[in-house]
Write a protein that binds this DNA or RNA. Structure first.
Lengths: 349, 349
DNA sequence: TTGTAGGCGTTATCAT
DNA sequence: ATGATAACGCCTACAA
């Protein structure tokens, strides 16, 4: 019988039904079955029904690996973030996953640990898999990384920041403008000796510091001695230490702009510890506006950034590009919002 | 010339060198080249060198999709966590990524959002890809989920918790014991009316509450009226609200055990707001011991859990099983540690 | 709209 | 230790 070859064919496969089985049962050719699944509108209603029934009967599920090999495309969307131990990126990822609801795409997540070389390595690995899209954090990719992204032949979105010449698409905001806006608010509230506390000092932190300089200089308040930064990773404890160092050496300090919210919380705790009234003796502002900021006593000022939306939108842009929808804007600036609370109500008079 | 078919073969592929190209250049058959890369010890030193040279010369990199199809195995390790907006899992993931250093495996991350049905859906998708291993959070998988995991034909690790009958392997600790230990400490410190504040109330939270009951009942202090829980997701703000509700309705309350650190921080802020001295008037303990706890003013007590280690070890166990190393322990209990600080120093006398 | 032919790049099988 | 052969399961290109 010609059925014998069917047996011998079984040598390797564990026996899961293939699209050929579906086709046979539906009485069509494999390619028609394939089309019925991927491009239903290109198949007559009748055959489509037959195929659907066969799929149902056999419990057929397509093999993503075979599909990937044949079409040189996977359903993987590579995402590279610089940190996982950071609520900021957790929110971004949440937005991305939400955008993927009901979509047949998988996120492949890479953690570059704020190291450009690691980002290159990850991109190399990711690109090899022929992903449907790639999303990277920041705009400071190395030349090599940019080249990989350009050659990847898929939509690319840079997130968290905006800047000139996107690789492909971009969604973020200006950290420099945001930094300047906070500091201008502090100045408007009456603070004068406004220090800067910064940890990690990755490119985006650097640009927030730039914004700080912009605002301080334009007000004639610039003074390098009230800036304290470290490449060490941020933490609440670090915020305490840095604040204490700065407050100790700069007697007149009356406010601090912290690089992020963890540092700001640390500064608050240290003020409580040193019995420095906030906001009367010291004003405190953070960055990102994590949930805890509004709940602190006193409530802590911060800069609200649209992390979830950046994640959501970046993924939507990627999906749109994958489906070859026309791209409306290559660079989307989501802006920011000052969330000024009790901790910057102004110095005691 | 026979070279013509080489040209026509170029129709589809973008032209990246394949293993056939390597083999040709090295003067060996494709399968030998393949072996030289995957199982070097099975190929003579000479040919191995030739192949290596050819790989180098051509800049050959294997196609993971083709490899997956041919071997019905990917280098993907599926990981499902219930939340991303949660430092707890960020630490776990960090451990996992660290364990993968220098390994040729990719993490495919899924977020079940604390929904068993979503976990099932993700597992279905993941299993389809024939992953090298699967790691899931908790021990409360549905029957369907367990079946999928069992049929996946790859190592499976359940993390965050220990319990009877693992699907395959397990690494975690007893939330119930940990909960009981904290409360016993509070009692030993002199607190009597110890409330429980719980958010989300996922299975692990439930078991912490169980531990609370264990300790309270054994001391004859049990009182359902000083327990407040909600299925709502945890937050600092929620901690404030829940504490205020509980403190308002339970006059004698002198301490709270919070389900997690965010709630504990919220409780602290609310105490500051209500001018209730901590720890003299109210003792506060959290769970997880996030970094901020030690930095708070006063420093906040918590239960130290080995999140990073759970991530690291679970991945190492998975890798070991993939490489078919003998499994020493199927269930690893990493335990916990009380981190008792100022916030539970005892009631004022 | 449907089908035929063949290839995608690699590895398992079996023989030498 | 090495190689010839045949999958792996699906999809692109082209034809009908």
């Amino acid at each position: 019988m010609t059925r014998m070859d069917r047996t011998s064919r079984r040598r390797r496969g564990a026996g899961r039904p293939t699209i050929a089985d579906v086709a046979r049962l539906a009485g069509v050719s494999p390619i028609t079955a394939s089309r019925a699944l991927r491009e239903p509108q290109k198949v007559s209603e009748e055959l489509r029904g037959n195929v659907a029934a066969a799929v149902e009967a056999l419990g057929y599920v397509p093999d993503p690996n075979a599909r990937a090999l044949a079409s040189s495309r996977t359903d993987v969307i590579g995402v590279i973030v610089p940190s996982l131990t950071n609520n900021v990126f957790a929110d971004v990822l949440r937005g991305m996953y939400d955008a993927l609801e009901g979509q047949a795409y998988q996120i492949q997540l890479g953690n570059s640990r704020y190291q450009p070389a690691e980002e290159e390595r990850l991109l190399t690995t990711f690109a090899r898999q022929k992903p449907s899209a790639l999303i990277v954090s920041g705009i400071d990719q190395t030349e090599t990384a940019r080249a990989i992204l350009q050659d990847a032949d898929c939509p690319v979105v840079q997130i968290m920041e905006t800047g000139p010449d996107p690789i492909d698409m971009m969604v973020g905001f200006s950290h420099r403008d945001a930094g300047a806006a906070v500091v201008r608010h502090l100045i408007a509230s009456g603070y004068r000796r406004i220090g800067f506390i910064g940890a990690r000092m990755d490119p985006r932190s650097q640009r927030r510091l730039q914004g700080y300089h912009d605002a301080m200089d334009e007000a004639g308040l610039g003074d390098p001695s009230i800036i304290i930064t470290t490449p060490a990773p941020s933490s609440v404890t670090l915020g305490r230490h840095l604040f204490r160092d700065l407050a100790t050496r700069s007697a007149g300090l009356d406010a601090v702009f912290c690089n992020n919210d963890d540092l700001a919380l640390g500064a608050l705790f240290e003020c409580q510890n040193m019995a420095l009234p906030v906001p009367g003796r010291v004003g405190i502002a953070g960055f990102n506006d994590l949930e805890m900021m509004a709940a602190a006593t006193p409530s802590l000022s911060s800069v609200r950034t649209y992390r979830y939306d950046m994640g959501l939108l970046s993924m939507r842009m990627a999906l749109g590009a994958i489906q070859e929808e026309p791209i409306e804007e290559r660079i989307v600036d989501l802006g920011f919002e000052l969330a000024m609370r009790d901790s910057t109500a102004g110095p005691a008079t």
